[in-house]
Design a protein around this nucleic acid. Structure first.
Length: 481
RNA sequence: GGCCCCUUCGUCUAAGGGUUAGGACGCGGCCCUUUCACGGCUGAAAUACGGGUUCGAAUCCCGUAGGGGUCACCA
């Protein structure tokens, strides 16, 4: 895999930019993860840099192949292409261990033989004192010669205890933490496997990552990871601090953290269950925590040009489905009819034979849908078989005078030679005029007869799309003898 | 609880010492109209609270309250 010779395009100011998205495959690609990926992608593309993908699968018990597939699938759906092959962290365990051992050899880490009981005792004491646990291992400064022979041990970082560490975060600004707040975290577990804290740093370094853009739930981790960079930089050089950007999390509608109970579903649910278009989803995610003046509708290309981490806000934002759907409606209206026809055919289960008809109906159909499911539902009348099932809400429209009016419409339309909107509208308006009623009193029964529903695309569009024979047949089914 | 971060309409955000505090979603009204949407116009709606600095504070400082994050041999 990549060593420290990653070569990438350079931005105009000469500074190479390499970002990465590093999800752990223990679940789907959720909203927050998707936005983190988007921001990393935009930042890299904006600077003409490199965007890498790393799967953090070191938790063998919880990592699954379906989760990996879901993440990759979600990113492709959102158009977040990564450079090169995805890196799998678990495969690099030997390299991580080697770094940990190098740190021991150079005195930046040490073998800790503390037992679970000893750790539990410190934890209990900390709780009693109402203080956070800051583990103090007696092995930090112990003579290695006094080490027990057959006892398991972990490798711990010898973290600085004096002074403070400050990071200049691109989003959070300068954040300072006292080193006394940190403890010596585990680098290598007693079974020899690396911890996340070690693996992240080693991989980011080896992949040449220059900018670490991630959720601000990792902000505290930056202070634990920096000592590893600095230790290794002291050992062999070439381990500069990365530039950090910790972006705020996305909360549920209730302001609480996204949870499985509160909308924390995978991006594929937005696609499959809510009928969201990827461009709408991306646009929505972009505007969560970031803004560019009064602009709301922002294309990916425009976003790439405008995106700037400094403009990302520091406070968490709430998810708003209504706004997502508004954007979705916009992108549906803008979408290509062939694409939508194929999508709707699949969602509605109409089959590939239905695509030509869907394609023809799409211009009037797509103007009135906020998501693809709605679009599929609204298209159902196209494939209904005679006699149509009438929606209860539309039944009233076919009562009273309606059958008589429809008989008049049938006669008028039957006489139309050129079956186009103009001729049809003229004919229907004439029926209304002859009967001395408003157009609506003719159009509404006609709509119910043709679609079985109370609402539909413009009635003349419906007539054209359905065609002469089918239209007259459906009218005939509902008219007075 | 310790530490870190945050706070402008209900929500997403703009304005970074001087604005009638702007836009978008949602909500109400009007217009368009064959229905529903779309679109157009329009209305209600915010600087968390308290001090301070200043001629002047949403904007700078301090405090309070509220919210979030984090404190593992998970990632």
């Amino acid at each position: 895999m990549v060593a420290d010779d990653v070569s990438g395009p350079t931005s105009s100011d000469g500074a190479r930019v390499v970002t990465r998205f590093a999800p752990s495959p223990t679940g789907y690609l959720h909203l927050g993860g998707a936005r983190t990926a988007l921001f990393n992608w935009l930042f890299a593309r904006h600077h003409g840099g490199t965007f890498l993908l790393r799967i953090e699968d070191t938790d063998r018990a919880r990592s699954t192949q379906p989760a990996i597939d879901a993440i990759l699938d979600g990113m492709r759906w959102l158009g977040l292409d990564w450079d090169g092959d995805a890196i799998f962290q678990f495969a690099r365990a030997d390299r991580h261990a080697a770094v940990a051992h190098a740190m021991v050899a150079s005195g930046h880490a040490y073998r800790c033989y503390m037992t679970q009981d000893e750790i539990a005792a410190q934890r209990a004491a900390a709780q009693a004192a109402k203080q956070p646990l800051r583990l103090r291992s007696p092995w930090r400064d112990a003579d290695p010669a006094t080490a027990p022979a057959d006892q398991p041990f972990v490798l711990r970082l010898k973290a600085p205890r004096d002074g403070a560490t400050a990071i200049d975060d691109l989003v959070q600004g300068i954040v300072t933490v006292q080193n006394a707040e940190l403890d010596d975290m585990v680098l290598l577990r007693s079974d020899g496997t690396p911890t996340y804290m070690l693996a992240v740093v080693v991989d980011d370094h080896d992949m040449g990552v220059t900018h670490v853009i991630r959720g601000d739930d990792h902000l505290n981790n930056a202070f634990r990871q920096l000592p590893i960079y600095r230790a290794m930089n002291a050992v062999e050089g070439g381990w500069p601090d990365p530039i950090y950007a910790h972006i705020p999390l996305i909360h549920g509608t209730d302001g609480a953290k996204m949870s499985k109970r509160h909308g924390a579903v995978g991006v594929e649910a937005y696609r499959d269950e809510l009928g969201i278009l990827p461009e709408a989803f991306g646009n929505y995610l972009l505007r969560l925590g970031w803004g560019h003046g009064d602009d709301e509708i922002i294309s990916r290309a425009q976003a790439t040009e405008w995106f700037d981490l400094a403009a990302v806000g520091k406070s968490p934002s709430r998810f708003d489905l209504k706004k997502l759907e508004h954007l979705n409606g916009h992108y549906i209206r803008e979408a290509d009819d062939d694409r939508l026809a194929a999508l709707v055919a699949a969602i509605g289960g109409y089959g590939s034979d239905s695509i030509p008809l869907l394609r023809r109906a799409m211009p009037s159909l797509k103007a009135r849908a906020a998501n693809l499911n709605e679009l599929a539902t609204n298209a159902a009348f196209l494939f209904a078989t005679r006699p149509l099932a009438i929606d209860p809400a539309a039944a009233d429209l076919l009562a009273g005078e309606a059958p008589s009016i429809l008989a008049g419409v049938h006669a008028a339309l039957d006489a139309v030679h050129h079956w186009d909107t103009e001729a049809l509208e003229t004919a229907v308006r004439q029926v209304a005029e002859d009967r001395g009623v408003k157009l609506g009193q003719v159009a509404q029964p006609l709509r119910a007869a043709l679609t079985g529903r109370k609402t539909s695309p413009g009635i003349f569009d419906v007539l054209v799309v359905l065609g002469r024979e089918e239209s007259l047949g459906r009218i005939n089914d509902q008219m007075a003898a």
